[in-house]
Design a protein around this nucleic acid. Structure first.
Ligand SMILES: [Mn+2]
Ligand SMILES: [Mn+2]
Ligand SMILES: [Zn+2]
Ligand SMILES: [Zn+2]
Lengths: 135, 135
DNA sequence: GCAAGTTTTAGAATAGTTCTAATCTTCTTG
DNA sequence: CAAGAAGATTAGAACTATTCTAAAACTTGC
């Protein structure tokens, strides 16, 4: 009884999205294995290799819709490209600079103490920790 | 006896850069007041308003050279644009999401405990903390 | 099955950034 | 301080990631 069933049409419907062939194919690639970090281009290449072809515009549309629906989270670590993360829970990232690889690490064991209060008139939205490493 | 004198030609030379008219004008705008966070476009607009005109290509060249020389640091917080930061010391950022504003906060009072060790074959390069807030 | 609303798509458009190559400036050397 | 070499600036073209447009193809509820 996992909250993340493999019935992708149902999961899309639950998120308020019509389960079109393209969205189901993308959801399958994104969610059927463990957590993933993809770019629009990498996902497009992957889904193309998996028989069903989906246009790049649709990949961008789906990634933005999935993010807006809370199925994905967007991660900005490098100028010029966005990553989309199937892990929507609290966690942080290693970013391996030369190859552009992202790895999760849990936020549970990490303690951030002494953060100042947000500037006047603002509310906290999210705290991102990016540990940049090189080979 | 500040390490950051207002003799911009000398500072540029010390960084291994020829003190051309354009670079001196940009350095003045960037470094003569306190710490700043600029984008290429915002710096271009600012320097244009200050009498001397500098092409956008030169602004990009100078920002990249200043960063490579250690005079600036590049901050990636939003998809599609880079910020350049005149504060090159250890510190972290508030990012005010709707308006794209960046504010520093010192890393001295912030303690990050329990960070996992970098993946095999990698060395730590930098830890970025971005506190995203909205109005 | 049909109509009504949605989605997909190819290709055009846009935004931020980098590149090209001609011109101009700065520096070195005599 | 003049001349030449090396380096910098610039306009505009090119490039990359992403979004937009509008026409054709789907999905859905009846
Ligand atoms: Mn987006
Ligand atoms: Mn750059
Ligand atoms: Zn992640
Ligand atoms: Zn800063």
């Amino acid at each position: 009884m996992s909250g993340n069933s493999l019935d992708f049409p149902a999961r899309l419907r639950a998120a308020g999205l019509r389960p079109t062939r393209q969205r189901v194919a993308l959801a399958r690639v994104l969610f059927e294995a463990g957590h993933r970090h993809v770019t629009a281009e990498s996902l497009h290449a992957e889904v193309k290799a998996s028989r069903m072809s989906v246009s790049l515009a649709t990949v961008y549309n789906a990634l933005n819709q999935f993010r807006d629906a809370g199925l994905l989270r967007e991660v900005v670590v490098a100028p010029g490209r966005s990553y989309f993360d199937t892990n929507t829970g609290h966690h942080h990232h290693f970013y391996i600079e030369p190859d552009g690889e992202l790895h999760d690490f849990p936020s549970e064991k990490v303690t951030i103490a002494g953060l100042p209060t947000p500037p006047k008139g603002t509310r906290l939205s999210r705290v991102d920790v990016i540990v940049r490493v090189r080979r």
